[in-house]
């Protein structure tokens, strides 16, 4: 009975799961943009859903259950369904035939490279032995207090930003303004 328990120590399991979920996230992410088998936008969107769900798995490993649940509800459950909705209503046959242009490829690589550079610089700046403060570990009440206490201004600014985007869309979609 104890053989497996000795074989895999308790602390190693989260590490192993991290590599599993990180690998899945990256793999699905690559399949979103460069799927060798299909250039169907719906397939890409479905792989994005899977990438988002694997990312929720990473949050669970960090004991951020609330964040994981919200990630699935908001991104996988709502945003991506709307993506699918729009993709399905578009005429996607043109999109499948379109060739990749060199300019776009260059711009894409440049922006991804910049973000990757920022991440690597950030990783180097962090001390690896520094433990994150466990105050928000899975506790929704504490998370709420932090969001509406210490970080209330950034939180509200982001909400206003989303509101601005929404008002803009409504304004653009109205053909004749009364």
């Amino acid at each position: 009975m104890d053989s497996l328990q000795n074989l895999i120590p308790e602390t190693m399991l989260p590490d192993m799961m991290f590599y599993v979920f990180a690998g899945l996230t990256l793999g699905f992410g690559i399949l979103v943009v460069a799927n060798p088998f299909s250039r169907n936008p719906v397939t890409s969107a479905m792989f994005l859903v899977l990438a988002v769900i694997s990312m929720a798995g990473l949050f669970v490993l960090l004991h951020a259950f609330f964040l994981a649940a919200v990630q699935v509800i908001v991104y996988a459950g709502a945003v991506m369904v709307l993506f699918l909705f729009v993709i399905m209503l578009l005429d996607i046959k043109d999109e499948q035939k379109r060739k990749i242009k060199k300019g776009f490829l260059l711009a894409g690589l440049l922006s991804v490279g910049t973000i990757a550079g920022l991440f690597i610089k950030g990783l180097h700046a962090t001390r690896l032995d520094a433990h994150p403060s466990p105050t928000t570990e899975g506790d929704t009440a504490l998370l709420g207090k932090l969001l509406f206490g210490q970080y209330v201004l950034p939180f509200e600014v982001v909400s206003v930003l989303l509101l601005v985007a929404m008002v803009g869309v409504i304004l653009l979609s109205k053909k004749d303004l009364k």
Binding site: A69, G77, A78
Partner: peptide, 12 residues
Amino acid sequence: LYTFGIVSLGVY
């Protein structure tokens, strides 16, 4: 929240 997360996937 778990329930809502899973229910929201049902639409797929």
